[in-house]
Amino acid sequence: MPPVSSRLSPAMQVVTSAVRKAGRRLLRDFGEVEQLQVSVKGPSDFVSSADLRAEQTLKEELSRARPNFAFLMEESGESGNADWEWRWVVDPLDGTTNFLHGIPHWAISVGIEKRIDADRTEIMAGVIYNPASDELFWAEKGVGAFLNDRRLRVSGRREMRDAVFATGIPFASVPRKAEFSSILHRVMPHVAGVRRFGAAALDLAWVAAGRYEGFWELGLKKWDIAAGLVMVKEAGGFSTDPEGGDPYATGNVVAGNQFLQPKLRDVVAEGIAAVKAHQAG
């Protein structure tokens, strides 16, 4: 097990312990992926018995350590005090389709959200853990972003032609498919490459690590992005929605370094606008 920094706060020590425990269970199931009980939630969106067991493990471990924290979890939704001050935002298995096909690119994502006032919250910390590679990405406000014990910084590349971007391909919404095609058509001629690996949490972690210059995807859920957004920020990057607003509120994310995030955001916004204009006309 790679070392984890002594900079970890008590709350983050709780999270890293919980995700490693859930990760061990997921790895056992990953080794027997063909025998999993699988039910269909929707097109290309599966939930497995492994997913549910991981969520239960995380809820038990986190509740034991912080009984006053509320939860927002992918499978079981919201629970705990409705007037929460602190909340765990949990995706127990991001990249479920990869997991079920034996592709070792999936992760556990846990964000720590604080209520600032009646209308505002802030993600204060996050952990994204890929048990298959034993890479534990973590970040905490004011402390920085790390991979195990190594400090992370976003890529320093400045030119679109040198950039590799990540994205997610939509599967359910026809309008969103049109938007994706429109955006991709505008991005591809100007960049070194576009990657789609199927786990938004890891995409954001990899932006923080400088492996990608940026990432965009529309229609994400809070548990997909909570940990990743604080990770990108603490690694020196930026995340907005295509209009420059809060991606945590809208679920539409454009993330990247200081040089390329504004350029990518403009291209994404142009692609969306073109589809809306076509539909209106």
Rank of each mutant, 00 (worst) to 15 (best):
I123R: 00
S109A: 15
G244T: 09
N148D: 15
L264I: 06
G42K: 15
K221Q: 07
A18G: 05
F30G: 03
Q37I: 12
V164R: 10
S239N: 03
R53D: 12
A70C: 10
F165R: 05
M12C: 10
V89M: 06
A54T: 08
H190A: 11
F146P: 04
R265T: 09
G142M: 10
N257W: 04
L260S: 06
S17R: 15
W88Y: 13
P43G: 13
N98I: 09
F71E: 05
G251C: 09
V174Y: 12
Y248W: 12
D162W: 08
V253P: 00
L72S: 14
E60H: 12
T96Y: 08
A201Y: 03
V127F: 05
T250F: 03
M1T: 12
V194G: 01
K177M: 14
N148Q: 11
H101G: 11
E179R: 11
G210L: 06
Q261V: 01
G214W: 02
P175C: 07
R150Y: 05
A65L: 04
E61W: 03
A172F: 11
A209V: 02
G156T: 12
E122H: 09
E78T: 11
V38R: 14
G168S: 13
V19G: 07
R120N: 14
E135P: 01
R265G: 04
S6K: 12
Q56G: 06
G144L: 10
V38M: 10
A192E: 11
E213D: 14
R28A: 13
P170S: 08
G77Q: 10
A54V: 09
V90P: 05
G156S: 13
E217S: 15
S133R: 13
V230Y: 03
G77C: 08
P170L: 08
A277I: 05
R153C: 01
D241N: 14
V191K: 00
G281K: 10
M12S: 06
R151D: 00
S173P: 04
P175H: 03
K222R: 15
I128K: 07
R176E: 15
W86Y: 14
F259R: 06
K276A: 12
